[in-house]
């Protein structure tokens, strides 16, 4: 009996020592939790935000814990995409991730990946500045609608409106040569995205997407909810850095590391 009690105490102490410091470090949140503060304006999303706890995901996509309802054409495209990450990861030298050639990630892949971004609300639009590739997008809130037949853009064309405390953003015109996430989830030029942004309190915000793309999916589907935390000034993520992947750096990295690590010398 005495041994069991000593064992239980030892295990509890070790669990405290091991897990308590590790958990926030894994989330990149150590030491930057702002104190409980003043009330917030739910219509003001300004600040630097970082997704909490990594992207998550399920068997197919970082956006969903559930399998995706692919059409036959969508599934064929999904199978043709060879990502370097996720459940279907292949060694990068044998993959076809657009990022391996230093292409931009595009809007959806940027949103699902845990890099800081800043939101700057203006009178007629909301500007979202992404650290990843040092790129911005505009969400027009001047009453306009998204175009019916948009030209392709890597970051799309977005128009937003407030419904209660939720910012609803319609996005169209996303270039389908890019992927929806790190795991190679495809989409077509028919894709329409409804983003629902909601600031829960001063420090926490959440995002859910509704994906409508009849060429790729048999029905509209709703993503998992992604949660973001405000990054206060002075914290590790409290300022945006320059994170740009250039072709010359990517080529150098492929030659010296990526291909060599896979035993590929002439790709």
């Amino acid at each position: 009996m005495r041994n069991r009690i000593i064992g239980a105490i030892t295990v509890s102490l070790l669990a405290t020592i091991i897990f308590v410091p590790a958990a926030p470090a894994q989330r990149g949140q150590r030491g930057n939790n702002p104190p409980a503060g003043p009330p917030h304006d739910p219509h003001d999303l300004s600040g630097i935000w970082l997704q909490r706890g990594g992207a998550g995901g399920g068997p197919m996509s970082e956006w969903s814990k559930e399998p995706l309802p692919f059409t036959p054409a969508g599934l064929a495209k999904f199978n043709a995409n060879k990502p370097g990450k996720g459940p279907r990861a292949v060694v990068p030298a044998k993959g076809n991730d657009p990022l391996s050639d230093a292409n931009v990630p595009g809007l959806l892949r940027t949103l699902v990946y845990a890099r800081p971004f800043q939101i700057i609300p203006l009178a007629d639009k909301i500007v979202q500045i992404f650290e990843w590739d040092r790129i911005w997008r505009e969400i027009w809130i001047d009453g306009r609608k998204v175009p019916e037949d948009p030209d392709p853009r890597f970051y799309g064309y977005s128009a937003g409106r407030w419904e209660g405390d939720t910012l609803i953003v319609d996005t169209v015109g996303l270039d389908p040569r890019l992927w929806m996430d790190e795991w190679g989830t495809p989409f077509s030029d028919d894709l329409r995205v409804e983003e629902r942004w909601r600031r829960l309190d001063r420090d926490n915000m959440e995002l859910t997407l509704t994906i409508t793309d009849p060429k790729t999916f048999t029905r509209p589907w709703v993503t998992d909810t992604k949660r973001f935390r405000l990054q206060p000034k002075g914290s590790p993520n409290g300022e945006l850095l320059e994170v740009i992947f250039t072709p010359m750096d990517e080529k150098d990295f492929n030659q010296k590391i990526r291909d060599v690590s896979n035993g590929v010398t002439n790709k």
């Binding site: 990594g54 990450k85 845990a114 690590s261």
Partner: peptide
């Protein structure tokens, strides 16, 4: 295991190592 897996899961060339 809990410490090691997430670090690798987010890394593009992780499958090579």
């Amino acid at each position: 295991i809990m410490l090691a897996v997430p670090l690798f899961a987010h890394h593009g060339t992780g499958v090579a190592y």
